[in-house]
Amino acid sequence: MREYKIVVLGSGGVGKSALTVQFVQGIFVEKYDPTIEDSYRKQVEVDGQQCMLEILDTAGTEQFTAMRDLYMKNGQGFVLVYSITAQSTFNDLQDLREQILRVKDKDDVPMVLVGNKTDLEAERVVGKEQGSNLARHFNCSFMETSAKAKIHVNDVFFDLVRQINRRTPINSEKPKKRTCHIL
């Protein structure tokens, strides 16, 4: 089964963790343990293919700035999250994206821009138009989600898997060395 390493980035308080937990476990769960080995792993079927997604959520460690490079180096696809209720979280993403491109040393990296917290429509300050314009700039896809109300959460991750598949189709992956066959 193909594995996908997905990194969720964004400022503190944008609901990154809610997005991840909703996708992996479905909030709210009574018995939840964030410390076990497969807390952030989920198997899904995308376009008829089984995929294993490993989510790296940076929630709680946004301010450990020196560590971002490593997250980025290891990630294959990126979810850039802002909150539609906080303009600054939207503005912060420009720098994050630049950092990703620098670390990956590429112009084009699988990425989804996510405006979260659409359940708080009354508090919206970042327009949908603004989001889609930025996504065009970034040349990536764009979605508005509500992790709380379970809206479009899976779509974010599925889209990312498709993007990764498009850029590196399964047959173009490094062929695994088969050392010996016992027949």
């Binding site: 963790s17 937990v21 709210f28 939840y32 964030p34 410390t35 940076t58 929630a59 709680g60």
Partner: peptide, 16 residues
């Protein structure tokens, strides 16, 4: 400390 911070953030998110 970061691991604890992530775990606590996740607990706070996942459990009502």
């Amino acid at each position: 400390l970061g691991t604890f911070l992530t775990d606590l953030t996740m607990i706070d998110t996942a459990i009502p």
